[in-house]
Every structure is written in structure tokens, then in C-alpha cells.
């Protein structure tokens, strides 16, 4: 396996939140000791429910937000200080796509101008070369120059997301962070964009961090998947294997909660309770109040992510050692 392009070690990030106007401020641990490595040309999928810290992780990896603790290394080097020339050069190699393409585009500019902007900012190529590059990018995302002359309002949701993708690819980045890129799209359009993303990844040997709550889409596009719960990674492993044989009780519930045509809801694990508030993180394993298999130890001791055989790592007191010792009868 090639060395990782992106290496995240033990990053944490907390925010101060005040309850009420005169309330005491409490620390909300959005991300707490997350470590990841993404190999060149591979996709790491990050799944979890709202408030699990997956978007914050993405922002820290991109350097949009500094971590309180821990470090992000890109291509073997630590992230440069924001604002410096080295940082600028590094940032041209990493780009991002978000959920809402309309919010990411300027409604008053033709989309071709917006695709060209990163080239102008980073001073890449002559004016004619930039024009050529814009046409090439539009073709790459399966649109025509005629689409480029339009304004965002005159494009459909799927076309807008293609424009955002084209703009992100303008500087020929090595690494792309996609935060819920297809969640706002209809199923048939979603499939178009997912296929396009898969194709482009192979053509341009892109490395992706793919953040989504949709297990199906994540599995489709990822090599490795990490599951987050309240700021921590609770399970990580290769995509097919993780969804076929989830080990952590939370992953099991998540996979079981994903509705499938042709299967009635019999045998589904329905978790009790709401996802807990990140500001009031339970003691011990954060998942224990909702866990159907919790034991006394779970309430007091925080489980650490440890290898359980293969490339799987699980943070759960009940899942230990090689996979032969699995306790569930599924």
C-alpha cells in the first residue's frame, strides 16, 4: 500500500457554548482524539449522525479550522501556517465540495467565470490557457460550454453540483473533501453525480474524504469507512466488510436502520433514546445509554479503538480480540 497522502493524528476540537444569557460556558467536544490515514488514490468514508463531528473533522483536515490538539500531515509534511505562500500552494492541492451547491455558487456570475476563479487566484496559466481549462473542466463533468454561460439559477440541482465539482478540480488537486455532496439531490441525479465522482477519481487519481450520513452512498464510493459517534471514531474498516459484518453495536444499529427494498422491518435494531447532546457527553463509552448490550464497565471506562482482526478497529468493551469471539448470534 502506498504511504498515506493525508494523515490525521489525535485531533481534537472543542467549542465554548453558553447555556442561557448568563449561563456558565461549557466546552463542547465536537471532535475528540480522531486519527485517520487516507492512502493516495483511495476514498475514506466518514459516517455518523448529526453532531457526530464528521463535518468538523473535514474542516480540520482541510485546515479551515485549527485543531486544539493533534496534527494533520499532508503528503508527509505538516500543514503550513495559514496565510503563508507555502499554505497557499498546499491549499491549491486540496479542495472541497459541500452539500448545498446553490449556496456555494455566486448567483450573479455566469458559472464559467466561477470555475475560472481558482485559476485566477492561484495564477495558473495564461488567459487563453485558463479559457481552455474551463472548457476542459466543463467537459470533464459532462456539461457543455453553453452551460458555462448560464447563471446558477438557470441550472438544475445536479448540474450545479457538477459546476461546484468542476471548480474544485480547476487547480488539479490531489485531495478532495466532499461533505454530503449528494444529499440534497434526487435519487436518479444522485446516481449520476456518484458515478461521475467515481470516474473522475480514477481518471485523476484523486484521494477523497467522503462525509455522509447515507450508508449506501458511502459504501458505493469508499475503500475504507470510519463510523463516528459524538466526536470519536467507534469503528473503522474496509467498506464492504464493515457493512456486511458491523462489530460495534452502534454500527450494527446504523446498518440495521438503513431501509432496504424487499426487506420488511422485522429484526431491526431500533435504538432507544435520542442522540445525546455533545455538550453533555455521557461518562465512559458515549454510546452506553443507548446501547442494547451495555455492561457496567461501559458507564465508567472509555473504550479505545483497537484492532480486532483484519483491518478492522473497534472501540467497544464487548468486542475484543480476533473476530472468532463475536458475541452476537447474527
Amino acid at each position: 500500500m502506498s504511504p498515506p497522502l493525508v494523515e490525521v493524528s489525535g485531533i481534537s476540537r472543542s467549542y465554548a457554548m453558553r447555556s442561557g444569557m448568563f449561563g456558565r460556558s461549557t466546552a463542547v467536544h465536537a471532535v475528540d482524539g480522531v486519527s485517520l490515514a487516507i492512502a493516495k488514490g483511495e476514498t475514506l468514508g466518514l459516517v455518523g449522525e448529526s453532531g457526530s463531528g464528521k463535518s468538523t473533522t473535514g474542516r480540520i483536515v482541510l485546515g479551515l479550522e485549527p485543531p486544539d490538539r493533534g496534527e494533520v500531515r499532508f503528503d508527509g509534511k505538516p500543514m503550513a501556517t495559514p496565510g503563508t505562500a507555502a499554505w497557499r500552494a498546499q491549499r491549491a492541492r486540496m479542495q472541497m465540495i459541500f452539500q448545498d451547491p446553490l449556496g456555494a455558487l455566486d448567483r450573479r456570475l455566469p458559472v464559467a467565470t466561477q470555475i475560472r476563479e481558482p485559476l485566477d487566484i492561484h495564477g495558473l496559466g495564461s488567459s487563453a490557457e485558463r479559457e481552455d481549462r474551463v472548457r476542459e473542466l466543463l467537459r470533464a463533468v459532462e456539461l457543455t460550454p453553453a452551460h458555462g454561460a448560464r447563471y446558477p439559477g438557470a441550472l438544475s440541482g445536479g448540474q450545479r453540483q457538477r459546476i461546484v465539482l468542476a471548480r474544485a478540480l480547476a487547480t488539479k488537486p490531489d485531495f478532495l473533501v466532499c461533505d454530503e455532496p449528494v444529499s440534497a439531490l434526487d435519487v436518479s441525479i444522485q446516481a449520476q453525480v456518484v458515478n461521475l465522482l467515481c470516474d473522475l477519481q480514477v481518471q485523476l487519481s484523486l484521494t477523497l474524504l467522503f462525509i455522509s450520513h447515507d450508508l449506501r452512498v458511502v459504501r458505493q464510493i469508499s475503500n475504507v469507512v470510519a463510523v463516528m459517534y459524538l466526536g470519536r471514531i467507534v469503528e473503522i474498516g474496509s467498506a464492504d466488510d464493515l457493512f456486511a459484518r458491523p462489530e460495534h453495536p452502534y454500527t450494527q444499529a446504523l446498518v440495521s436502520a438503513s431501509p432496504a427494498p424487499g426487506r420488511r422491518s422485522a429484526g431491526r435494531i431500533v435504538l432507544a433514546g435520542d442522540p445525546p447532546n455533545p455538550a453533555a457527553r455521557p461518562q465512559g463509552c458515549a454510546f452506553h445509554p443507548r446501547c442494547p448490550r451495555a455492561i457496567a464497565r461501559c458507564a465508567s471506562e472509555v473504550p479505545v479503538l483497537s484492532a480486532v482482526g483484519g483491518d478492522r478497529q473497534v472501540a467497544c468493551h464487548l468486542v475484543t480480540g480476533p473476530r472468532v469471539e463475536r458475541r452476537d448470534a447474527a
Binding site: 438544475s156 445536479g158 448540474q159 434526487d186 435519487v187 436518479s188 441525479i189 444522485q190 446516481a191 449520476q192 456518484v194 458515478n195 467515481c198 450508508l215 449506501r216 452512498v217 459504501r219 458505493q220 464492504d240 457493512f243 456486511a244 446498518v255 438503513s258 432496504a260 427494498p261
Partner: peptide, 24 residues
Amino acid sequence: QGLIGALPPLDGPRRRLTAIPGTV
């Protein structure tokens, strides 16, 4: 058929999604 083909499977082998071309 297109809607069901566009849905990524959660188990079994991965296949290329059969996207419906064009828009509504």
C-alpha cells in the same frame, strides 16, 4: 426500474449505478 437501479446496494458486490440520464 431506473429509480431502483440508481439506489446503491448496501450488501453484495458493488456495481456501477444505473443513473437515469437527463433531468425531470
